[in-house]
Nucleic acid binder design. Structure first.
Lengths: 131, 131, 131, 131
DNA sequence: GTGGTCTAGACCACG
DNA sequence: GTGGTCTAGACCACC
């Protein structure tokens, strides 16, 4: 389980991990029923405090992304079918915000399209992409 | 000076204002030499504490975006020519992150392109767009 | 961590502390990676408000002299190799200003040299010298 | 009357002007009985507010450096003979502080001497030196 | 415990 | 009126 944690970011570490795991589940990279690493192991591998990981699992559980088997550990739950669609809409919104900002810097519709296409190609050429 | 402040966001209020003003300067919406609203007035109009605005201007000044004449006020400094380019590169990076996330959700290159085009058109059709 | 703070000086308290800590880092008295006193403890030991110390660290961090791990504390970052050289050039400039002022008071080159030598000896004789 | 005013300095503008004029008087560049520029003219030529210059003259007068002829203007008073000596001692102190700082940066007595000599020569070679 | 942010209110110097 | 600094005290997130 490889997650990049930015300790200097404004968004709290636990939220970074939560969304990273959420995305793995939604993207199908973590499959239903599979068990997650233990709190302690994940904490060590991410270089964060065990309390932080505990909080991560607590949040994930309360949002229905994982279930706990007391004494055994956490395993991923079945993602609600609509959550993927919601996530994509969020991504659309983020994309829109970026486009609007580019437009403010006097970039034309064509300029923005060019930039986008270049980036898109880049992403699909290299197959070693992780967020 | 219209800036939306989200008190519930993870990113601190003062940083929201800092980047908003930075972008106005980089986008040429605030021109060099023009004076900015006073600390107190901006604080009132944004609904935040004067100290928060003071911190905003302190940061902007230490990054060279504005200059202060004590007893007079703040005015915008000449933005370094490279800062716009740097900001655009940041936006490219954000775009790339989004594309990568979309890709993880099993969207094809073509799918992503379609989504992007729809959003881009939407932005350039309506001319009442501010982030 | 012994720093003299003059509350009656024209130069603001937070800047006095900033330069004091900067000099300690540049002089190698605080070594890279070593952790600094906590905001609250330093505030007490210096007799100033915690916010003032927070501002000090904020400035030091934005200038790259220290780094922070929220919840842990501050530690000194690796000083840029050129910063020591730059500091020495500043000191040269200060020295030059003083010499020029002495010259205006009708002191000859020889007079100034004598004064300087006397002071220099004084400094290197007594080994209990801290600014 | 040429005085450099740094609006970005921490030391207040009026104090900068006060010490500049004091030094002119002590150095004999302004002679006893000669009249000073009017408040308004000096304010314009220095690019500061007339109130600031008024405060300068007020301070200079209360310290005995100038006298006022109401309705006429200010003229320089006879400097106390000891004030020059006091000013030189202050300069010695500043010099000592600089030397101590240099020493902290691991400069040897010889190193400091070399730096000083180079600066001293530079000052006495060029004859266009103003503080 | 730590850093980080924000509010509230005061005082000063400068215009 | 302006910016600038400082104090005091609160709350939050993280360890």
């Amino acid at each position: 389980m490889k997650i990049k944690v930015d300790h200097h970011s404004d968004i709290p570490v636990y939220k970074q991990i939560v969304t990273a795991i959420k995305d793995m589940i939604l993207a199908g990279e973590l499959i239903e029923g599979k068990s997650l690493p233990s709190v302690r192991k994940l904490a060590i591998s991410l270089g964060v405090n065990p309390n932080t990981v505990a909080k991560v699992f607590f949040v994930l559980q309360s949002e229905g992304y994982v279930d706990s088997k007391p004494g055994i550990g956490y395993y991923v739950a079945k993602p609600s079918p609509s959550s993927i669609e919601k996530r994509l809409i969020d991504l659309d919104d983020e994309m829109r915000r970026i486009i609007i900002k580019m437009k403010r810097f006097a970039l034309s519709e064509e300029d923005i399209n060019k930039r986008f296409s270049a980036i898109l190609e880049g992403v699909f050429e290299n197959e070693h992409d992780r967020s």
